[in-house]
């Protein structure tokens, strides 16, 4: 009996994967490897240019961009967002009252880990929390009102450097790792992960689009797309990316969407906010 147990134990130990560096969460090491990968693969792209997504990868597209940006198609969203932002709720408070520095120039600090709820809070979620705290209905995370507010907040933060913190809290590290896992997990009938497109193939063409590099990929959100004929929030973008590989998208601002945004934003630390963006 005892022999059987020790045999089983021995077998179990053999079967258990060796505890290697791959099994411990180490955001700092991940950060360095991630950045090195992109800067070595694209030595001619200036570090701060990665935040311009597809334009950093393609000279032709870049020329179009210069023309697009002369009359930015997201201007209407900026104007609307500013007006919404400055208009008090019926109780006299404003969005600014919900945020540090009255909400101006703070986009680079989102998402953050909230110790109280134990969850990752994105800017979009913080905005809806603000609305609800002031007796307002939350906005749809995929639609224009949310895009306008986040566009304005990104605009006031342009050039500020991502400064995402992972506090020394088991739950924060777990959220980070879940985000990392989501990013590298293959899904959908086409069996692609986020990394298949945005790490393996940045600069490649998919139909008419040029794939953005994962480094700095969240800096330009929200984004105007001619193809959409309007603005897209972070949720709208992720939902589209999931659908492209024939995967059923998650709910907007699902925990895993927030975690993957947390992971990608941390990977972008030190890079400037460039949103709102405009894409062909």
């Amino acid at each position: 009996m005892r022999r059987a147990v020790s045999l089983a134990l021995a077998l179990f130990c053999l079967a258990a994967p060796p505890a290697s560096a791959a099994d411990t969460v180490n955001p700092k090491a991940d950060f360095k490897a991630f950045r090195d990968y992109f800067t070595k693969r694209f030595p001619n792209v200036p570090l701060n240019d990665f935040v311009n997504g597809p334009y950093s990868m393609d000279a032709e597209l870049r020329k179009q961009w210069v023309e697009i940006d002369a009359f930015p198609p997201y201007q209407f969203a900026l104007d609307k967002g500013k007006q919404m932002f400055d208009t008090p709720f019926p109780n006299g408070k404003t969005y600014g009252d919900c945020f540090p520095n009255k909400g101006i120039g703070i986009r680079q600090n989102y998402p953050f880990f909230d110790a109280k709820s134990g969850e990752v809070i994105t800017l979009d979620v913080a905005l809806n929390q603000c609305r609800q705290a002031n007796g307002e209905e939350p906005f749809d995370y995929t639609k224009d009102d949310m895009a306008a507010l986040t566009a304005y907040m990104a605009y006031t933060s342009r050039g500020k450097l991502f400064d995402i913190k992972i506090p020394n809290d088991r739950r924060a590290l777990a959220a980070y790792q879940k985000g990392e896992e989501y990013f590298y997990t293959r899904r959908g009938q086409l069996n692609f992960s986020c990394a298949s497109c945005h790490v393996q193939s940045p600069g490649d063409h998919i139909r008419t689009e040029v794939l953005a590099p994962a480094l700095g990929i969240v800096a330009a959100l929200p984004i105007y797309r001619s193809e959409w004929g309007g603005m897209g929030t972070t949720s709208r973008r992720l939902i589209t990316c999931n659908s492209q590989v024939r995967g059923v998208p998650l709910k907007p601002e699902d925990e895993l969407y927030r975690d993957v945004e947390y992971y990608l934003s941390y990977m972008s630390n030190g890079l400037p906010i460039s949103g709102p963006g405009a894409r062909p």
Binding site: P17, A22, D23, D30, A33, F34, Y37, E180, E181, Y184, T185, R186, R187, Q189, N191, S193, A195, V199
Partner: peptide, 22 residues
């Protein structure tokens, strides 16, 4: 198809680690 997606998820539960940029 559903069974294939389940198999994919189970396989990826550990396989994703091999894809991480290191």
């Amino acid at each position: 198809l559903a069974n294939a997606s389940i198999a994919q998820a189970k396989e990826q539960a550990t396989a994703w680690k091999n894809a991480v940029v290191r």
